[in-house]
Amino acid sequence: MTTSSLTTGPSWARLPRRHVPVLVTLALLLVMYSIGVSQYRAFSNVQVIFNIFIDYGFLLVVAVGMTFVILTGGIDLSVGSVVAMTAMVSAWLLQSGLPALLVLVIALLIGPALGFLMGCAIHFFDIQPFIVTLAGMFFARGMCTFISSSSIPITDGFWTTMAQHRIGDPRGNFVSIGVLITLAVVLVAAYVLAYTRLGRNVYAIGGNPQSALLMGLPVARTRIAVYTISGLCSAIGGILLSFYTLSGAPLIAVGMELDVIAAVVIGGTVLTGGSGYVFGTVLGVLVLGVIQALITFDGSLNSWWTKIVIGGLLFAFILFQRLIGIRYK
């Protein structure tokens, strides 16, 4: 008996399947972009892409954090509120005269701290992530208005520099510093997921948490870590947003978690965990950005069409994942 007879199918037919969803997102992105280019001359300007990164940088950072959580099979509904809370806390502390660096450190600690607590509640008390992060969402949003019921402007020099500094080429195309931070976060996250034990444990838990436990992987630590990472990404996203808007507003980023989840799913990450890539999430966010850009360029379409189109795309992608046989547990 040859042992190879026990394998199923040739390797070429099997390997790409994991990459198919990401490739489809890429194809969709290219198609939408070429539609834009063919319809509107200004669309071909590189700055359109740069603007997407400028406008959606904070969303991308948050989506990267969400990718970690979803890869373990969890979900984090608190991200939008944590983004708002971080921006709010920064604006408030700056207004009360704290030095920028200290504010930055404090603001970047709050998100991960909340994430850590939520992770502990989820892991040690075995409460559904959905419920715990929902409470986290309520808590963070409540903190926003607790701090102030109206928006607080930011006039700090460091913040305004970050908001206004442009890094560009002689032809006038530019990105903000926020975009560079975003790219750095994406690269670090991709590296962590692909090359570190923490990253591989994330995939293992998403694949089968009980096996992961029996294989001796640090399930508790990893699970708490992903919510902490998501909290950190939300905090960074909140800082980026405050760079972008130069204010902290209690009702900003309401419902953002939906866009984030949509971006992650469109980027090919399976909501039940275990399969997906940071690169896909980048593509997912770009898809959302290009849709928005197309609708803005069109001018005749109302903003609600964005939601309908995103919903439609979600449907198409989920249906597609079903069809190519990515199994939901």
Binding site: R200, N201, Y203, N208, S211, G216, L217, G274
Partner: peptide, 18 residues
Amino acid sequence: VNLCPNLSVAENIFIGRE
């Protein structure tokens, strides 16, 4: 069998002590 179905054979053998 307690393995992670989504990971490769090699990774399943070594995960946790790569």
